[in-house]
Write a protein that binds this DNA or RNA. Structure first.
Length: 396
DNA sequence: CTTCCACCGGAAGTACCGGTAA
DNA sequence: TTACCGGTACTTCCGGTGGAAG
């Protein structure tokens, strides 16, 4: 038994090594977190942000910045690119400068954001247990005794503010008032313009001291980016410019999202690799598009809590019968299912919220509709693209 | 013009959990 | 050990609402 499985492993490794043509030479270069040395078509933005931040090198506090742009337009890449460059320069000039990068979708609570910021200047902050005010106090204290310039980047800050309000931003924007020897600036990155309108006017004027807008890439620019990156990542014999062009066009249709485009190319390469095809073809790209969506849905569903799964199941059955569901119908079916499983059902209020959560995850489409005499409710549908995947996942 | 449906969604509160500090 | 902290996952309560029907 054991020998047998070992044999299987040997085979896998063997076939991998024996492959004559390798598709990738450095797959990491297509990874979403990788920041290349060249950022094509973002020269203007780099220049803009660099000129805002460059006073750091003279020990002057830079303005707070609000960066706006749709997903995959290079906001994060440009920001980090510039900050890293400044960090290097600062080191040479012996200027005290550090920056914190926090993605508020990953660190999605007040406590985690502040502790991430504090950690970036070398503080050790426990994962939980102490008061937020205390973490903040320690941060301010450490900044004061360090006495340099600290730049805090809050990526996807709209996501945090939507859930927790702007109290934290207010506090961070005014942190300088408590600093004697150090200086701090805030860079907010958002892909929602309307986000700015909902802010406390004091935060708005302070955070928006300077605003930078990232326009989406067009198909041509996306192609340039992909060509550039493909040169680094792929074996040149394993891919053709036509395939890259196709991937770029596909991604351009979805609002010029470079991240998606790179994902597409990477997955297409992996598919070719798996099929042991020597070169990446357009068909692989097409298949990658499906696979990305399929994989995402699968992963989301598998990490869903029990009640959310039941609600989703209820929606699927109703939609299967009538094409769409309402909150009330969903709730009734859900209660039946829960009772069958001898699980205590949750309240309708909560179910309504779970439906909204499923909507945000992209598993269903829920639109609030007023049907006059017949009341106000959410009309819930399931996107064509994911319905098969969902039924698949729920039956296992 | 008014009624009234079938919910929406904010607010406040509760229970519990994993954690720290003293 | 005990007091406390923040986050999650709910519940309870309730005012609010757009527009078809009357």
């Amino acid at each position: 038994m054991f020998c047998l499985s070992k044999d299987v492993l040997e085979k896998v490794i063997e076939s991998r090594l024996a492959k004559k043509v390798r598709i990738f030479v450095d797959k990491e270069k297509l990874h979403p977190d990788y920041i290349p040395e060249k950022l094509p078509h973002r020269e203007k933005e780099i220049e803009r942000i660099a000129s805002i931040l460059v006073p750091i090198l003279e020990g002057v506090r830079p303005s707070n910045v609000l960066i706006y742009g749709l997903t995959g337009t290079g906001k994060t890449a440009v920001t980090l690119f510039t900050l890293r460059w400044l960090e290097e320069k600062a080191k040479k000039l012996a200027t005290k400068f550090k920056y914190a990068y926090v993605n508020t979708r990953k660190a999605d609570t007040t406590y985690r954001i502040i502790s991430e910021i504090a950690r970036s200047i070398g503080l050790r902050i426990p994962q939980t247990g102490i008061a937020i005010a205390e973490v903040y106090r320690r941060y301010v204290e450490a900044l004061n005794s360090w006495g340099g310039i600290h730049v805090m980047v809050l990526d996807e800050v709209d996501y945090y503010v939507k859930r927790h309000g702007d109290d934290l931003l207010y506090k961070l924007v005014r942190v300088n008032e408590e600093l004697k020897h150090a200086k701090a600036s805030l860079i907010g990155v958002t892909n929602d313009i309307n986000f700015i309108e909902g802010l406390d006017p004091r935060v708005r004027s302070s955070l928006g001291e300077v605003e930078v807008v990232f326009p989406p890439y067009n198909a041509e620019q996306l192609e340039d980016i992909l060509q550039e990156r493909a040169k680094l990542a792929f074996n040149p014999l394993a891919i053709t410019p036509e395939v890259i062009k196709y991937a770029a066009a596909l991604a351009a249709r979805e609002h010029g999202d470079a991240r998606r485009a790179l994902d597409l190319l990477r997955i297409a390469g992996e598919i070719a690799e798996r099929l042991e095809d020597p070169i990446v073809a357009i068909d692989h790209v097409k298949q990658a598009l499906l696979e990305i969506e399929h994989g995402r849905v699968k992963q989301v569903i598998s990490s869903l809590p029990l009640h959310s799964k039941l609600v989703l199941k209820a929606i699927v059955t109703i939609v299967g019968e009538k094409g769409s569901a309402t909150t009330g119908e969903t709730f009734n079916t859900y209660v039946k299912m829960a009772k069958e499983m001898r699980v205590e059902p949750l309240t309708q209020r909560r179910i309504s919220e779970i439906v909204s959560e499923l909507d945000m995850l992209g598993l269903v489409n829920a639109v609030v509709v007023n049907r006059g005499r017949y009341g106000k409710t959410k009309v819930i549908k399931i996107p064509e693209l994911v319905i098969n995947t969902i039924t698949d996942c729920l039956n296992t």
